[in-house]
């Protein structure tokens, strides 16, 4: 099951040229970018691993692509995303966040129903991938 987190996730995967154009858009808006990766794609997992520090003072997408490629080569079986942060007063939030790499088999999520008192149901989603230890989750 293809996970749909972040911008563009309902579209086919972006090509490198398209990613470069997106980065260019972010830089033109003055948003510094950062690269993050994880192998736990649970929607509530907001704390992905940081690939280096956020990149400030860049002018050209080539510098960001350098880091994206480095991260993708080091973690070929992880989700990799790019975050663009808008630091302007009044916004101060992530302005754009999109996945730039996803592992090949995406097993998806299991939905657990837990019946409590008065037939009240609570739901839990669990990624099938997280059944295995970190680092072995997306090995084919």
């Amino acid at each position: 099951m293809r996970i749909t987190q972040g911008t563009f996730s309902h579209l086919p995967d972006l090509t490198d040229d398209e990613i470069t154009a997106q980065i260019g858009y972010c830089l033109d808006n003055g948003w510094p970018l950062s690269v993050e990766f994880t192998d736990d794609p649970h929607p509530r997992n907001t704390y992905w691993e940081m690939w280096g520090l956020p990149m400030f003072d860049l002018a050209d997408p080539a510098g960001v692509m350098l880091e994206v490629d480095a991260c993708r080569t080091t973690h070929p079986d992880c989700y990799v995303k790019l975050n663009a942060y808008d630091a302007r007063l009044g916004r101060q939030t992530t302005a754009l966040s999109f996945i730039v790499q996803r592992p090949e088999p995406e097993p998806g999520f299991r939905l657990d129903r837990h019946e409590g008192a008065d037939r009240r149901i609570t739901y839990t989603t669990t990624s099938y991938a997280t059944g295995r230890p970190q680092g072995e989750r997306y090995l084919a």
Binding site: F8, H10, L11, P12, L14, D17, E18, A21, Q22, G24, Y25, D28
Partner: peptide, 21 residues
């Protein structure tokens, strides 16, 4: 509708700014 017109959506959103391919 959501799935069928993917290419149109893509042209609309995937390339913001002046760098439109």
């Amino acid at each position: 509708n959501g799935l069928g017109d993917r290419s149109a959506v893509r042209r609309g959103f995937a390339m913001p700014g002046s760098a439109v391919a």
